[in-house]
Computed example of a mutant assay.
Amino acid sequence: MTSGKSYFRTTETGEIPCEGGVLRMVTVKSPSLGGRGDLSLYIPRQANDRADVPVVILLHGVYGSHWAWALSGKAHTTLQSMIDSGSLPAMILAMPSDGLWGDGSGYAAHSGRDFEAWIAKEVPQAVSEVTGNSPHSPHFISGLSMGGFGALRIGAKYPERFRAFSGHSSITSTKDMPLFVEEPLDAFGPELHVVEQILENRERIGPFRFDCGTEDLLIEQNRRLARQLQAEGIDFSYQEFPGGHEWTYWEEHIAKSFEFFASVFS
């Protein structure tokens, strides 16, 4: 990118003041999406006038969009409360849409659009341009369900970008997508599996964790992933908690990701 010139052809922003910071809505013209891409940012007051703040990207699940983690999951209020209590350093939340393809894009490249590049490359660029934060600040990625799949796979694929990654109630393979979406499986391109991506980059990936509710429809997929990684000698953390595939679970346990990222950062 040329100095002083935006990577994106157009950028539109608007703000919603919050008690501890600001929610900033952003729409950019995304080359990877071939159209507009949306993201919500949460910038805590402790990040003001700083250019070295860690960035946490949160990926939503099927049916939702960039607003889901803030409005349904209260992720920004959880983050602000933890920052105010001293249990977290200041962090910026970036909550992008998945590209709004079908019921859910899977955060992969298919159908003539690169939903993976939107997340891995363009969202960090947009955060830097809109906030003035350094593009070289530490980046982390997490998500729920389809977003957990995206976070685990993209986090493992781009270790030079993401210092650590996390998933909640994660889809573990594109083969799980038909449990939620009406689009045919072959529309998502070649099958993608979290375990394969982790093993491919096993020598370079950062620390990672994932969790799942014991009443979740994806519990056996997550247990199988944990067994596969353990058999391969991969270092990771896996936890199970009471709960199902629902916002009450994710609202409570997103704090686990924040705490994990803070421990890696420190």
Rank of each mutant, 00 (worst) to 15 (best):
D52H: 04
P178E: 06
F258R: 04
W67H: 14
Q228F: 01
P17L: 05
E215I: 00
G213T: 01
R45N: 13
G64V: 09
S32M: 00
I171E: 11
V194I: 09
E191W: 02
L218H: 05
S173Y: 12
L59K: 01
P178H: 08
P54E: 15
L218S: 03
S3A: 15
H60L: 05
Y42W: 12
E15W: 00
S145P: 09
S87G: 00
T2P: 07
D52V: 03
S30T: 07
C18H: 06
E196C: 01
M1D: 11
I119G: 07
W69N: 07
L58T: 09
A231M: 14
V22N: 04
G34T: 02
F115C: 03
M91G: 04
E160Y: 04
V181R: 08
D52L: 03
T10E: 15
P96S: 12
A117E: 13
I141P: 04
G106T: 09
S105A: 10
E160F: 03
R153W: 08
K74I: 00
P138K: 10
D103C: 12
G167F: 01
V264M: 07
F162V: 10
G61H: 07
R9P: 00
D235A: 14
G64L: 11
A226H: 09
N133L: 10
K121S: 09
Q228L: 15
M25K: 12
M177G: 00
A108T: 15
G150N: 10
L218K: 04
F258P: 04
S65L: 07
H253K: 10
T131R: 05
P89G: 07
D216S: 04
T27K: 12
D52W: 04
V22K: 12
A75V: 14
A68I: 14
M82H: 02
W118M: 11
K256A: 06
G106Y: 09
T131L: 05
L71F: 06
F180D: 08
